[in-house]
């Protein structure tokens, strides 16, 4: 975690830092995604998840994170991409969203990158694995296109049915 939190792709560090943000990029299927690193609490291996009856398959269950019960969502299953296999390389990103802590399973975690706000361009209507509602923009790093995801919105969305509507995030 410590190592990941350090910027590894520092560019133009001498310039104005104000609009630079750090993102965590991860792979889901063939696409690369990025989320605001401030929403990431930690990255863990996939372990001992207790399944919950009568919930959708992508809700893998709950796990014990230092005494807190945290739900684990497999985004691969939810969006039908990648291979939903679980082994020692399976990665869970623990997100801290307001008062809630949620874990998401992705194919792999790639990097921490720095992006300027203007580098994140509005996304055209396109067919990503998830609804463009949850996409805050597109960015290019080197040759690769990154889909910048509003992870708050995605996790909170009624699509995922993670929370009762009664309690707002934040």
């Amino acid at each position: 975690m410590q190592a990941i939190a350090q910027p590894s792709t520092q560019r133009e560090s001498g310039l104005d830092q104000a609009d630079l943000r750090q993102y965590l990029s991860f792979a889901l299927g063939k696409e690369a995604y990025a989320i605001d690193i401030l929403k990431v609490q930690e990255i863990r291996g996939y372990e001992a998840v207790t399944p919950i009856a009568n919930t959708p398959a992508y809700i893998k269950g709950v796990t014990n994170l230092r005494g807190n019960i945290v739900p684990i969502v497999d985004l691969r299953l939810k969006f039908n991409v990648g291979e939903a296999s679980y082994n020692e390389f399976t990665v869970v990103i623990i997100l801290s969203l307001g008062v809630r802590v949620v874990g998401i399973v992705v194919d792999s975690v790639s990097d921490v990158i720095m992006l300027r706000d203007q580098e994140v361009r509005p996304a055209p209507q396109f067919s990503a694995v998830f609804d463009t509602r949850y996409v805050s923009g597109l960015a290019t790093v080197g040759e690769q296109m990154l889909i910048v995801v509003d992870i708050d919105q995605l996790i909170r969305s009624s699509d995922l049915m993670l929370f009762d509507d009664t309690r707002e995030l934040v």
């Binding site: 009856a53 919930t55 019960i69 993670l162 009762d164």
Partner: peptide, 18 residues
């Protein structure tokens, strides 16, 4: 432990424990 803290209420489940 409350399930609802990070999740929602599940019918038939009163809570969780470690």
């Amino acid at each position: 432990k409350s399930l609802e803290q990070n999740f929602r209420k599940i019918a038939g489940i009163a809570g969780a424990t470690i």
